[in-house]
């Protein structure tokens, strides 16, 4: 499949990219690794008039120890994050999850910024960042702003990013222990049918993959844990209030069931790892 024609511009800086984006935000798309956008363009499900290639903007590929948190440049590839010593040491959940995205070839191209900005509820990294209570650093014509992960993922393929904004950095609190991740799929290369990222550090944050229109928290489980419930009882409430999709890989009912099993396993991992 061949994409429809478009105008290609290669940005040398965030400012340049934002300038081009501002010219016609609705028909302009940012291209980083391209592993969310190009597949859609090949199937002609996306036909942007202008592609702004931000992939070569210098200074946006880093995993940095910033004291109480870790800062990750938006152009950091999944593979870079997976093997980053900083990530492995301070946010091993994120390093681990980066190593679970797609397949090795995808991880050599796909970026964390692209994955988060795409806002796909079936993606792994949004759940990890949500469980880590991350912060998105967003640049735009109105300047820089920070958006909490909890406010970033708004709906199906919809984020807090305005059409003229660009995600440039992700910040996550350090969480060297007390994490678990479960990805359930039929083939290793596929998106999760259901996935769970859990962080248990004092309080517990449990984020779910593919359990709704966007990545979201298992609030009922978190509340139960806060109220002192044991893991099994808390996990049994993982799907409460959620309306997961039905598709070829699983019905909504099955997804609800999977969520309870996988949340329990992720929490068991998290608490075992913490001990």
């Amino acid at each position: 499949m061949i994409p429809a024609s478009f105008e290609y511009r290669r940005a040398g800086s965030v400012e340049e990219a934002l300038g081009w984006l501002a010219e016609d935000p609705d028909s302009t798309k940012l291209l980083a690794g391209g592993h969310s956008l190009l597949p859609l363009m090949k199937l002609r499900l996306a036909t942007p008039g202008v592609l702004v290639d931000v992939g070569r903007i210098p200074g946006l590929n880093y995993v940095r120890d910033d004291g109480d948190h870790v800062a990750i440049g938006a152009l950091t590839r999944h593979r870079d994050l997976e093997v980053s010593d900083v990530a492995r040491g301070h946010v091993p959940l994120l390093a681990h999850v980066a190593g679970q995205v797609g397949d090795p070839q995808v991880r050599h191209r796909g970026t964390i910024g692209g994955s988060l900005a795409h806002g796909d509820p079936a993606s792994d990294l949004p759940a990890a960042v949500l469980a880590l209570d991350g912060t998105m650093v967003v640049d735009g014509p109105r300047g820089r702003r920070e958006v909490q992960a909890a406010d970033f993922f708004r709906g199906f393929l919809e984020t807090a990013l305005a059409p003229d904004e660009m995600l440039t950095e992700v910040r996550v609190h350090k969480a060297p222990a007390g994490w678990g991740f479960q990805k359930f799929n039929r083939r290793a290369q596929d998106w999760a049918i259901v996935g769970v990222a859990a962080v248990v550090n004092g309080d517990a944050r449990v984020a779910l993959v593919n359990m709704g229109p966007t990545t979201l928290r298992a609030r009922a489980t978190e509340e139960a844990l806060d109220a002192g419930a044991n893991i099994a009882d808390a996990a049994a409430r993982a799907a409460e209030g959620l309306d997961p999709p039905s598709d070829l890989n699983g019905s909504a009912e099955y997804r609800r069931h999977l969520a309870t099993v996988l949340v329990r396993r992720a929490l068991e991992e998290a608490t075992a790892a913490r001990g």
């Binding site: 290609y8 291209l31 592993h35 190009l38 597949p39 290639d53 050599h108």
Partner: peptide, 8 residues
Amino acid sequence: SVKSCTML
């Protein structure tokens, strides 16, 4: 390794 079908 990269998939050359998913790169311009």
